[in-house]
Design a protein around this nucleic acid. Structure first.
Length: 366
DNA sequence: TCTGGGGTCCTAGGACCC
DNA sequence: TCTGGGGTCCTAGGACCC
């Protein structure tokens, strides 16, 4: 019998900040981009539960969060405290969490900085698995002073959805024989992989819940969304045999930057492209990979239209010179009125990414 | 409201080869 | 003169996740 657990930490970034700074306790808190008095361009990474009462959520524009905070303040409520993201500190806490999981489960998959799947099949029963999960939650609380929510089910899909049912500090166990019924009343969007676009298409068809979607045949789902439709057909029925992925290698390394103001200043843009190339190259060197074959640049215009251009080299490259040269060649036509940007739209974001990473020592061009 | 930054995976057309 | 099918690679874009 397969039994899988999923740990999802509660308001992770915000919870760490609150833990480490007693003055923040009880206050609405947002970790994310600098709001700059309402003019900031980023988004909210994490809002604590108090800030969520103001309508602030992950991925909300930070300017909107600022506005919501101001609105609350005008009603006499405490204003939101805004903090920047300190990803290195959170990564340290993440390592502590993963270490705890590793002690109590046979295999674990680190799904993100604050999420992990763990295999509890060895316990032999849901009763025993539940006991292990309670132990894990207790150890996490003791050792990190943080809480997480745990889901348990017959596969990754059910465990993940279950972990989100009771938050914060929840434990939701879904037995294999109950899994299909458990999913049926849930909104279609609950299924991982169904995002805003797919949700909208379903809504237009009058489909809102998993149960509604089960009326669609394999054929219909396949026609609607290709290969993914067939996977979805299985997921709607609580079936998922995807394995835990314990080890994986990155497939690409990239950096991108949204500017404070949109620009077409060629000197500035070339400087930022150079900077991004350098940052990507530093990470490439640290990664241990020996070469890269594809260089991709991303250009986002003021109207949010986003273009990518890429070049795959015959022979892997490895130097900053190669990376920067290829990136610049791809970018130049965007500065030229006649080519990629005839209307001379201002540029909002620039990105550089390398792919087709080579780990062995193949011939490398300089 | 005005939309980050790090990624992954899939699709589709065209080039090219057999 | 008009005509295949399959496979792989490259490129660009799109949807999605945390």
């Amino acid at each position: 019998m397969r039994i899988i657990g999923h740990l999802d930490m509660d308001a992770f970034f915000a919870a760490i900040e609150e833990r480490d700074n007693p003055r923040l306790q009880g206050k609405p808190l947002v970790v994310g981009a600098d709001p700059k008095g309402g003019k900031g361009r980023g988004v909210v990474s994490t809002a604590n539960y108090k800030a969520r009462e103001y309508g602030i959520r992950s991925a909300l524009p930070i300017s909107t969060a600022w506005r919501l905070s101001e609105a609350a303040r005008s009603k006499g409520l405490p204003p939101v405290v805004f903090l920047g993201v300190d990803i290195e500190r959170y990564a340290e806490v993440s390592e502590q969490l993963m270490a705890i999981l590793r002690k109590h489960a046979a295999h674990i998959e680190e799904a993100s900085i604050d999420e992990a799947y763990f295999d509890l099949s060895f316990t032999g029963s849901y009763e025993q698995a539940t006991i292990v999960c309670k132990t894990i939650k207790r150890k996490i609380k003791e050792q990190t002073k943080l809480t997480g929510s745990v889901g348990v089910g017959p596969n990754k899909l059910i465990a993940k959805i279950a972990s989100d049912r009771q938050k914060p500090d929840g434990l939701t166990v879904v037995l294999e024989e109950n899994a299909e019924i458990f999913l049926e009343p849930l909104p279609i969007r609950t299924i991982p992989g169904v995002g805003p676009k797919t949700e909208k298409r379903f809504h237009e068809m009058g489909i809102r819940t998993v149960k509604d979607a089960k009326n669609l045949s394999q054929e219909a789902l396949n026609t609607m969304m290709g290969k993914w439709g067939l996977e979805l057909y299985e997921k709607l029925r609580a079936r998922d045999n995807s394995p835990l992925v314990e080890q994986w290698e990155p497939k690409s390394i990239g950096e991108q930057e949204t500017f404070e103001r949109d620009t077409l200043d060629p000197v500035f843009l070339r400087k930022r492209l150079r900077f991004l190339s350098e940052e990507v190259h530093k990470r490439f060197l640290r990664s241990g990979f020996k070469g890269f074959r594809t260089v991709t640049i991303t250009v986002r215009f003021e109207d949010f239209v986003t273009r990518t251009r890429s070049k795959t080299l015959k022979v892997p490259g490895a130097t900053l010179k190669t990376l920067h040269f290829e990136a610049l060649k791809l970018f130049m036509p965007f500065l030229d009125r006649r080519e990629e940007n005839p209307q001379q739209k201002f540029i909002r974001l620039l990105g550089v990414r390398i792919e087709k990473l080579a780990s062995n020592k193949q011939p490398v061009s300089s």
